[in-house]
Design a protein around this nucleic acid. Structure first.
Lengths: 154, 154
DNA sequence: GCTTGACCTTCCAACGATGGTAAGGACTAG
DNA sequence: CTAGTCCTTACCATCGTTGGAAGGTCAAGC
């Protein structure tokens, strides 16, 4: 009976933690499976397939909401590949934007670092740059739309 | 009397919302200012200076904890520029890693997109790629240490 | 006085995706 | 019967920021 598709089995088979499988169920990304008499979740092979799809999409950085759409398209036999490609291109554009932002930041810091001796002296252009750079700030609010600039989420 | 450095004034002067200024105080990034009889926060010009420093560092993507370190170094007259440069280089390394991750992802999706017609036909290599790619998953856990791959923090 | 409106205060919740932990029930092997 | 592993729900933490609610304060006008 150990080959029952309970959550642990599915988790190890898909590489998605039991925690996340339950989470995907609560947010409606995965349909709620049947339960055993004891209340255990019992999955079908189709669920494993779906979870693999989700994992792949997550690995590619698709946000949950886009994965929801992708899964809808995936299950829909009458979808057009045009719509799927649109979603993918949209995602690529977002990736490009984030890459560009990070590169801009990297360049700014690199510029500061270049002028820092990095020795025993306290003199440090990096700190000076952080303290002094933007002339006024009231105006910069409009330009700086980098809210989505997240540091490492891990 | 309107030139009192209360939180609203400081907020508009630094471009940091009053909300965030209070937040920085609660997490100990900014020291708690004096209060008026009514309990209003009354800041000094040094605080404005500090907040500008914080804002710049955030704009460059430094996480709060690193900003805390940077501010310590900034205020410390006996610091060495070496330590500051180390922190900055560490941050650059993290940026590089994130950029690389995003580029890898972008390349993978781009590869899928290239083979998709993007027309009225339902046939779609993108969805197939998402559904089928990784042969087994149990092993892939070790390789995939991209936990910190966050989508847009919005 | 009394009201209006802008400002301030604290506390609580949310985003997105995941990890952790706790308390308790269910199962399996010895 | 017991030990150990699995399952259940539920809450808290991350990370930085924003939003709202409910209430106190202040400066102005009538």
């Amino acid at each position: 009976m150990s080959n029952q598709l309970n959550i642990g089995h599915v988790a190890s088979e898909t590489g998605i933690s039991a925690k996340m499988i339950r989470h995907y169920e609560t947010i409606g990304l995965l349909n709620a499976p049947k339960r055993s008499d004891a209340g255990y979740r019992i999955y079908e092979h189709a669920d494993v397939h779906k979870l693999r799809f989700i994992r792949q999409a997550r690995n590619l950085g698709f946000p949950i909401e886009q994965i929801r759409e992708l899964m809808g398209l995936w299950q829909n036999q009458r979808r057009t590949s045009r719509k799927v490609k649109e979603l993918a291109l949209e995602h690529i554009a977002e990736l490009d934007e984030r890459i560009r932002e990070l590169q801009d930041i990297k360049q700014a810091i690199t510029h500061l670092v270049k002028h820092c001796h990095g020795d025993e002296r306290p003199d440090c252009p990096i700190l000076e740059g952080l303290a002094n750079s933007p002339g006024s700030e009231k105006a910069s609010k409009a330009k700086n739309n980098k809210k989505h600039l997240k540091h490492n989420g891990g």
